[in-house]
């Protein structure tokens, strides 16, 4: 199967899952921003994305996307380490054109993944999971705004999220254009343009996410 056997096939999988996850993030961040504008509206979205069949299918696909992306990342990283050989360079420097993020995607990905577990515990576990399993406080399962204000009332959590989102931002600045490059959607003229567009997309997504902890950190969200 060439999607497993060939390096470009594997990269195709990384790119497609990556692009899919970016689209998810875009959707997620658009949704989140609502909590600032209208907590009621936000809760309507939470209700809509509860334990419904369509939301469940979407969640499953999303989870599969994550799992495949992570498994392939492990697979590729392992192969790449083996290709590098047993003896490492004693001295290795990078030219300034080489982005730091591009060399550390696996580390950034691991950080993102670690915080993701925390994030799932704080939200998904208390919301969709409660609805599904019936355990816990079902009345608050769709009250996203409550959980958001609850969590971000702690400035530590605000900071944790800001750090996490920064790592995600770095991951995306390389990831987005890299996915397009791996899909072959690039050429000499478009290379710098694709990079710029990717940076803009990742920055918008992350700023939308980050506006929430910042909003709470600055005390605007305390009223809820």
């Amino acid at each position: 199967m060439w999607l497993i056997d060939s390096s470009i096939g594997r990269k195709l999988i990384m790119s497609i899952t990556g692009v899919f996850l970016v689209l998810f993030l875009l959707f997620h961040s658009l949704m989140n921003i609502v909590v600032i504008i209208s907590p009621e509206g936000y809760n309507m979205i939470c209700e809509f994305l509860g334990a419904n069949w369509y939301a469940m299918i979407a969640t499953s696909i999303l989870a599969a996307g994550f799992v495949i992306h992570i498994l392939y990342a492990l697979f590729l990283t392992f192969q790449n380490m083996r290709a590098r050989g047993a003896v490492k360079y004693a001295l290795k420097k990078n030219q300034k054109e080489v982005e730091w993020t591009s060399q550390n995607m696996f580390i950034l990905g691991t950080i993102v993944f670690g915080f993701l577990a925390l994030h799932l515990y704080n939200f998904w576990f208390k919301m969709q999971f409660v609805e599904l399993s019936g355990h816990g406080d079902v009345s608050k399962a769709a009250d996203g705004a409550y959980w958001v204000s609850q969590l971000f009332s702690s400035w530590i959590y605000c900071l944790i999220y800001i750090v996490w989102l920064s790592a995600l931002w770095l991951h995306l600045t390389h990831g987005v254009w890299s996915a397009l490059q791996s899909l072959g959607l690039n050429n000499k003229t478009w290379l710098p343009r694709v990079k710029t567009i990717s940076n803009i997309i990742s920055t918008i997504v992350i700023l939308m996410f980050m506006s929430i902890p910042i909003y709470y950190l600055l005390g605007f969200g305390s009223g809820i």
Binding site: V98, S102, S182
Partner: peptide, 11 residues
């Protein structure tokens, strides 16, 4: 190994 588009090659 697999290309991860670091651009070190071109540089």
């Amino acid at each position: 190994g697999n290309c991860t588009n670091t651009g070190a090659c071109e540089a």
